[in-house]
Amino acid sequence: MKTIKSILGIALISLFTLSSCSSDDNTIVIDNTPDFSGTFAQQDQMGRPAVNTVFVGSASKDTFNTTIPSQQSAAFQAMFETNLTGLSPAFANPGDQNALGQDAATFTGLLATDVLNVSLDGTTTFFDGTNVLTGRALADDVITVELLLIFGGEDFTENPNLSDDNVDANDKPFLSSFPYLASPW
């Protein structure tokens, strides 16, 4: 019968260690040089806001988060397009476009590569009426922009009930200087 032998063995050893144990076994090691060794493996990634939430089905989220951006379009554009046309009446019919003149395939081809495009030459904004996808500023109402592109149709007028969440600004003013984000509550 296999019993609790392993406990027995350790108990004997521990008797010995107990008697030799002193109370100063909490050596404090002062480490002046932090350890930066090791390999770090991908867990999560993000480019544009809410893309993952909206277009990636839960079964694909793990894979999406560990697919490098240069391969995302090939792997996920079709799924994005299916989800977009299923979700939005503004893309329900062939030939439907958003206000950027993109049809479902073009739009989802852009979205499936989840990177943020940033201009180094001037205004940086998700969308300000003039500039499109030149960055993402703190005050940008990115969700409404995305909703408009998804639901708003060719001229941003379709499905008004779905194309604005009616939350247009942060609840605390941003700072004009670094670190820009408001102090915590």
Partner: peptide, 8 residues
């Protein structure tokens, strides 16, 4: 404790 290492 299981292992009898009470001090630990």
């Amino acid at each position: 404790g299981h292992a009898g290492r009470i001090k630990d």
